[in-house]
Design a protein around this nucleic acid. Structure first.
Length: 447
RNA sequence: UCCUGGCUAGCUCAAUCGGCAGAGCGCGCGGCUGUUAACCGCUAGGUUCGAGGUUCAAGUCCUCGGCCAGGAGCCA
């Protein structure tokens, strides 16, 4: 009996019999010869049926097998440069085929491109498509690389609650849900405050889960539900934080390059640009970036562009500003020392410059922009209390958070990384909605 | 919330100045022993987003409405 194998391991079986279980992705019939491109989740494999090798009724069925039919195929594995697929270069002769189900002929997803509305309405089927499968494979690798790296660096993965009592940062819109006799609970937009509590029990911690933002953002960089990684190490200043970030990002990129070569190739990703992503990453202060942008704006002649690039010290970067800054380097770029006024209340002020805080954003190159945002946290109890009062935040809600500064406070830092933004960048794709299996956007909760 | 663009066959799109509603893909039928989103031939497939208006004539122009997109703001 032939061994059942994964398509991804096909190269180990050349010259032997093997069985694969999967779905017909495409069929090309040539009269007395039929090619079935079969996917099994691990890859795509060409299976070849010759008329002379099969009983007439079986061959007739294979020749008419609809796209997406589920099959179990057994036959000889052959090395053949002509064979397409992922990894490709190998094919399976059809000696025996069991058809579990002939798919309906009205399968709506074409192998050609669809418009976004149609594709998203059929996301449950769209994910079967090779391009989407490749992107989501990269996502899987990013997720596992994250855990692999942080676990290896002595971080502990402590989960933080998704149902939370109130706004962590006050400003951003939250999803609200009724909560028994307590009134309302809110879907977490960050696990950071809880991470900070976990720090004092575990030292270096991270949370990794879905995050919710009810902002009415309608761009190719936004989802209302996205996955965020938030590492928070104790005894770590801003410089130490940047080192954690560049170590993590480098490990993610190298892991994807190593294990997702075929997927990136299929997506047409220029791999050489990712190979350049190694620590250390360039660093730039907000002051330097502001100066650069102001100069750039002065030199701009197109009035529309000039308006978009308009900038003065104290502003937060808009998308067009970010894009310009990402063009400066081939590697991700750290920008640190933002004005306190545009950042959150818990960020440590810069020594001797209270108008600036110890915050850092990491911008992915090639125009992709912000993938991480973080800071050193205020560790002094009085200073934090003052910040909370100044922001007009409800002191009572932050009692437990303030406690953390009373019992063994230490310098600590943390950042958040948007998983889908990283995947979008690594895959070189246009839109973040393809970087998550079932995207949630302002206009879409189906399917 | 604002700005811009779009809506025509199952899908992706064309239709000149307002003048007969088209193609490719997919489905169906036929052909082909090396296809790579195969190719070749044939068939079927239309409430042009909705309502109203202008006109001899509207997919095309005007008004209102709906839906989608991506950009601004905000952010990861």
């Amino acid at each position: 009996m032939a061994e059942q194998i994964s398509v991804s391991h096909i190269s180990n079986y050349a010259g032997r019999e093997a069985t694969i279980k999967g779905w017909v992705y495409n069929r090309t019939d040539k009269g007395k010869l039929v090619f079935l491109l079969v996917r099994d989740g691990s890859g795509f494999l060409q299976c070849v049926a010759f008329k002379g090798d099969l009983p007439p009724d079986v061959f007739e069925k294979v020749m008419r097998l609809p796209q997406e039919s589920s099959v179990i195929i057994t036959g000889p594995v052959r090395e053949d440069k002509r064979a397409p697929g992922i990894p490709g270069g190998y094919e399976l002769g059809v000696r025996e085929i069991e058809i579990l189900q002939e798919a309906g002929l009205d399968y709506p997803m074409s192998l050609k491109d669809h418009g976004p509305d149609f594709a998203l309405d059929h996301r449950h089927l769209w994910i079967r498509k090779k391009s989407q499968w490749a992107i989501l494979k990269v996502r899987v690798k990013v997720m596992s690389a994250v855990r692999e790296y942080l676990d290896g660096q002595g971080f502990f993965n402590l989960d933080t609650p998704i149902l939370t009592p109130a706004a962590a940062e006050g400003t951003t819109t939250l999803f609200e849900t009724p909560y028994f006799d307590e009134g309302f609970a809110y879907l977490a937009q960050t696990g950071q405050l809880y991470n900070e509590a976990n720090i004092f029990s575990f030292g270096k911690v991270y949370c990794f889960g879905p995050t919710f933002r009810a902002e009415k953002s309608k761009t190719r960089r936004h989802l209302t539900e996205f996955w965020m990684l938030e590492p928070d190490p104790a005894f770590c200043d801003l410089e130490g934080l940047m080192e954690v970030e560049e170590g993590l990002i480098t490990h993610i990129v190298q892991s994807v390059l190593r294990d997702c070569e075929a997927e990136l190739k299929h997506l047409g990703r220029e791999v050489s640009k990712l190979k350049a992503v190694t620590a250390p990453f360039p660093r730039m202060t907000y002051d330097e970036a502001a100066k650069y942008l102001i100069e750039l704006g002065k030199g701009e002649t197109d009035p529309e562009r000039k308006e978009l690039l308009k900038f003065e010290w104290g502003m937060d970067f808009g998308a067009p500003h970010e894009v310009e800054l990402t063009k400066l380097n081939d590697k991700p770029l750290f920008i640190y020392g933002y004005p306190s006024a545009v950042k959150a209340f818990y960020m440590e002020p810069w020594p001797g410059r209270p108008e600036v805080c110890k915050s850092v954003d990491l911008l992915a190159p090639e125009g992709y922009g912000e993938i991480c945002g973080g800071s050193e946290r205020v560790s002094d109890h009085e200073a934090l209390l003052n910040r909370i009062r100044k922001e007009g935040l409800p002191e009572e809600s932050f009692k437990w958070y303030l406690d953390l500064r009373k019992y063994g406070s230490v310098p600590h830092s943390g950042f958040g990384m948007g998983v889908e933004r990283v995947v979008t960048w690594l895959c070189g794709i246009e839109h973040i909605r393809e970087a998550i299996p079932f995207p949630r956007t302002i206009k879409r909760v189906y399917p």
